[in-house]
Nucleic acid binder design. Structure first.
Lengths: 94, 94
DNA sequence: CTAACGTGCAACCTTGAGGTTGCCAACCCG
DNA sequence: CGGGTTGGCAACCTCAAGGTTGCACGTTAG
């Protein structure tokens, strides 16, 4: 895999995953079950997205009892800020 | 289409399309046939990628006789520079 | 202990992205 | 004009991403 962007852009290509990124940026942490309330799909589907985000290095997780709490990695936070700035730029500048 | 990123990230998710972006950034313009020499696929497949890039607003085209010359839009150039800077950042800083 | 909750794993289904082939129209050169 | 290029259109194929269901396991509360 010569291109370091494959995983990241693959992960970022899905709007649901971008939404997860934004949610985690706003709330700090979340569980798969909690995120299920945010997205029009089952918990299993959300879990798969979280795996994709984790593989891309954008999200990390930690077990807390029976819960699994997800949070942004540093790279994930970078991307979320980048996306947010870019969105404002696009919406503002044309 | 509430999210302006859908088309752009969808387009950027494919490594072949990122390669096209890079090629156009280096060469100014190119035809589908010319790009076919750059990618492991048929001209038709390249043409489809060019449609995707055009729909995302990253590339524009102009007819020149029997040729169809493609070039980066301003947004496409922005993205290419962004990607290039980002790649160097990732490869350099870990 | 037991019921309820949250998670993880695996099989399965469906759709569309990515690619191919075939064919036909437009254009350039001789 | 006629032959070789360059492009565009459309049908078709394949495969994996995205989603669902079903179930078994650990954890917590009562």
């Amino acid at each position: 895999m010569p291109d370091p962007f494959d995983a990241v852009f693959g992960a970022l290509a899905d709007p649901n995953r971008r939404h997860v990124l934004g949610y985690l940026a706003n709330h700090g942490t979340a569980t798969a079950t909690e995120l299920t309330g945010e997205l029009p799909m089952t918990r299993q589907a959300v879990a798969k997205h979280l795996v994709t985000l984790t593989d891309a290095g954008l999200v990390e997780s930690e077990r807390a009892g029976r819960e699994m709490r997800y949070r942004l990695t540093e790279a994930g936070g970078d991307w979320d800020r980048r996306l947010d700035a870019l969105r404002r730029h696009l919406e503002g500048g044309g």
